[in-house]
C-alpha cells in the first residue's frame, strides 16, 4: 500500500493543479495577513474560506483523480496487489497531497508573519487539522461517488451536487426546519443535524476553540451548552473522525465488488 500511496502522491505532485492550489493558499495567506494586519481576524476569514473551499477542492480532486487514473488503476489491478490496498493507497495519496498544499500554502505566510511567537498558534493548528479532516472526508465521499458512477460527467455532477448540498443547501433546509418547528424543543435535533454535516461540524469546532460567541449561532450555542467547550471540541473531532472512517470503509467495500 505504501508503494501505491507514494506513486499517487508523486503523480499528484507533478500535476499543475496541486501547485495552483498551493499557490492559491500561499497568496490567500499573505493577502489576508497584510490586509488585516492582525492574525486573529485573518484566522476567522480563513476559517470561512477553508470550510467551504477544502471540501470543494477535495471533491473535485477526488473525482478527477479517480476518472483520470482509471486505466492506470486497471494496470495495478492486474498486478499481484490486493484490491483494498490500491484504492486505500490512492485515497490516502490524494488526501495527503491536498493536505500538504493546504498546510504549506497557509503555513508559510503565517510562519513568516511570526506565528510561533503568537498565542494564536493553537487556533491556527486546529484550523489546519480541520482542513485536513475536510480533505480526507470529501475525497472519500467523492471516491465513493465515482466508484459507483461509470459515467464521468454524471460522477462529476453528483459530486458537485454533494458538495453544494453539504455547503449550502443543508444549512438552508436546517434553518427552514428550525423556523417551521420553533414551537418544539429543537436542541437535540439541532445537535444531531450538525453531526450529519461535516462542514457545519467543522465550523462549530473552530468557533468553539476561537470562543467567539457572536459567531457561534444557534447550533454552536446549543453545542457549547450541551458539551461545554472542551468536551464539545473532543466530541466534534471524534465525529469528524467517524466521517473519515465510514466512507473510507465503504470505498473498500465498493472496490471489492466492482468490475473493471
Amino acid at each position: 500500500m505504501l508503494k501505491i500511496l507514494k506513486y499517487s502522491i508523486q503523480d499528484l505532485l507533478r500535476s499543475r493543479w496541486s501547485y495552483v492550489y498551493f499557490i492559491f493558499y500561499l497568496l490567500l495567506g499573505f493577502v489576508l495577513l497584510f490586509l488585516n494586519n492582525n492574525m486573529d481576524k485573518a484566522i476567522i476569514t480563513l476559517m470561512n474560506i477553508i470550510i467551504v473551499l477544502t471540501p470543494l477542492i477535495g471533491t473535485i480532486f477526488g473525482v478527477m483523480y479517480y476518472y483520470n487514473s482509471r486505466e492506470f488503476t486497471e494496470l495495478l489491478l492486474a498486478q499481484p496487489i490486493k484490491r483494498n490496498k490500491i484504492f486505500i493507497g490512492q485515497y490516502i495519496g490524494i488526501s495527503l497531497s491536498l493536505t500538504l498544499s493546504l498546510v504549506l500554502g497557509l503555513g508559510i505566510p503565517f510562519v513568516a508573519y511570526g506565528l510561533f511567537k503568537s498565542a494564536i498558534i493553537f487556533d491556527f493548528v486546529l484550523l489546519l487539522i480541520v482542513g485536513a479532516f475536510l480533505n480526507f472526508i470529501f475525497v472519500a465521499l467523492s471516491y465513493n461517488i465515482s466508484l459507483s458512477t461509470e459515467n464521468k460527467i454524471k460522477g462529476f455532477g453528483y459530486a458537485i451536487l454533494m458538495w453544494l448540498f453539504m455547503a449550502v443547501i443543508y444549512d438552508g433546509l436546517f434553518l427552514i426546519s428550525l423556523v417551521m418547528f420553533n414551537e418544539y424543543p429543537l436542541e437535540k435535533f439541532a445537535l444531531a443535524a450538525t453531526m450529519f454535516n461535516p462542514i457545519d461540524l467543522s465550523r462549530i469546532l473552530i468557533l468553539l476553540k476561537l470562543d467567539i460567541s457572536a459567531l457561534l449561532g444557534y447550533t454552536g450555542a446549543v453545542f457549547k451548552d450541551f458539551f461545554g467547550t472542551s468536551l464539545g471540541l473532543l466530541s466534534s473531532l471524534g465525529v469528524l473522525f467517524v466521517w473519515v472512517i465510514l466512507p473510507a470503509l465503504n470505498i473498500v467495500r465498493k472496490a471489492n465488488k466492482k468490475d473493471f
Binding site: D11, N68, S69, E71, E74, L75, A78
Partner: peptide, 16 residues
C-alpha cells in the same frame, strides 16, 4: 497474479 503477465486492451498510463 505473480505468475501472470497481462497486456490490457487500452494502453493508457498516468500522463505525468
Amino acid at each position: 497474479r505473480k505468475n501472470v503477465n497481462y497486456l490490457p486492451q487500452i494502453a493508457n498510463f498516468p500522463a505525468n
